[in-house]
Simulated scan of single mutants.
Amino acid sequence: MHSGKRFGAREFAVWTKRSILWLTVLSSIPTILYFLGCTFLSFPWQPIAIMGTAVAFIVGFKNNASYSRLWEARQIYGAIINDSRSFGYILRDSLSSKNSGKVKEMFLRHYAWLTALRFQLRETRTWENMDTAQFDEYARKYDIPERLSKLDEELKNYLSESELQYILSKKNRATQLMASQSRALSEAYANGEINDFQWTQINQQLIKFTDNQGKAERIKNFPYPRNFSSITTYLLLLFILFVPFGLLKEFDKLGDGTVLEGLTLWFNIPFSLLVTWCFHTLDSVGEASVNPFEGSPNDVPITQISRTIEIDMRDMLDEENLPAPITAKNNIVL
């Protein structure tokens, strides 16, 4: 998540410098060929304008869908924050008078669940963008915590050695941690440490966590539909290729009868670049938001949220040495 006031113009320029370079080349080639006498390369601008309208609609649709995925992901983690706090004080007040050790154990297991879930959500998928040159280069400005540490090292802080090995042997670690919470809760109920009402309350919280995990996994594992993504890419590419050809004749005759006659043709390069850059950057903005857990600067800050939950819940137990909050690096916090 970008925590600054805005992305600066320089940041946008650096982020799009590769596209600026090849868009300049694509604008220059037809202009130079036209100048050298290949005037047949000039296309009517009207069909290209119609194509631009179609591209604008489909890019706008993609960006709207991307934002919806991002906002849903933020709502999911917002629910996890609230439900974790409720889980913490309900569990503490229901169980601590009879078994404070189990309360501490279940709190630690909840931190482990948050950790396992964020590591699973940061795993790469073939359709994600973080491994492309444009995004990989910008990623050097900040840190992705899940790529700087290993899950087993993180979970050591929360689980016993036997439970750690058991969880690591499973495919979906977050799910199995929540199953362990349910088992621990059932044991407390069977031992008479909590009553029917308390068991129901705490169990409902576990169900909410499972529900939110499933919602997050749905976004992670189901990409923006490939048919929409593909047609956007192809139409945008065709539009970018044709724009310089459609503006050749218009800029060539712009200087007729003036001191700039014969020179205005070269305006085709910067203006074609400007038009195509706008469309291409709008599409890139959508791509930067469409996968809200991949580790991009526009992601939901699931590491920071997980740490905030851990701090709040440790504070409920009056622990003194609380972990430090996650802070932004170059205005990016994950």
Rank of each mutant, 00 (worst) to 15 (best):
H2M: 08
K5G: 00
E11Y: 10
V14N: 05
R18C: 00
S28V: 14
L33N: 09
Y34L: 07
C38I: 12
P44Y: 12
I50Q: 01
I50Y: 09
G52S: 12
T53Y: 05
A54C: 09
V55W: 06
A56E: 08
I58Y: 05
N64Y: 09
A65R: 09
S66G: 11
W71C: 00
W71I: 04
R74P: 03
G78Q: 05
A79S: 12
I80P: 05
I81S: 05
N82M: 04
G88Q: 04
I90C: 01
I90F: 02
L91R: 02
S94Q: 10
L95W: 06
S96F: 07
S97V: 14
K98D: 09
M106Y: 04
L108D: 15
A112L: 06
A112N: 07
L114E: 14
T124C: 00
D131S: 07
T132I: 07
A139Y: 01
K141Y: 12
I144Q: 08
P145A: 04
R147D: 07
D152L: 01
E154N: 14
L159F: 02
S160H: 04
S162G: 02
E163S: 01
N172C: 01
A174D: 15
A174F: 03
Q176I: 05
Q176L: 02
Q181P: 02
Y189T: 09
F197G: 02
F197R: 08
Q201F: 02
N203K: 02
Q204F: 05
D211Q: 10
D211S: 10
P225W: 08
Y234Q: 08
L235C: 07
L238V: 12
F239K: 03
P244Y: 06
K249Q: 14
F251N: 11
F251D: 10
V259S: 08
N268S: 06
N268L: 05
L273Y: 03
C278A: 15
F279V: 13
H280R: 14
T281E: 05
D283W: 13
S284W: 04
V285W: 13
G295Y: 06
P297H: 04
I311L: 02
D315P: 03
D318S: 09
E320Q: 08
P325E: 11
I326P: 04
A328C: 03
I332N: 07
V333Y: 00
L334D: 14
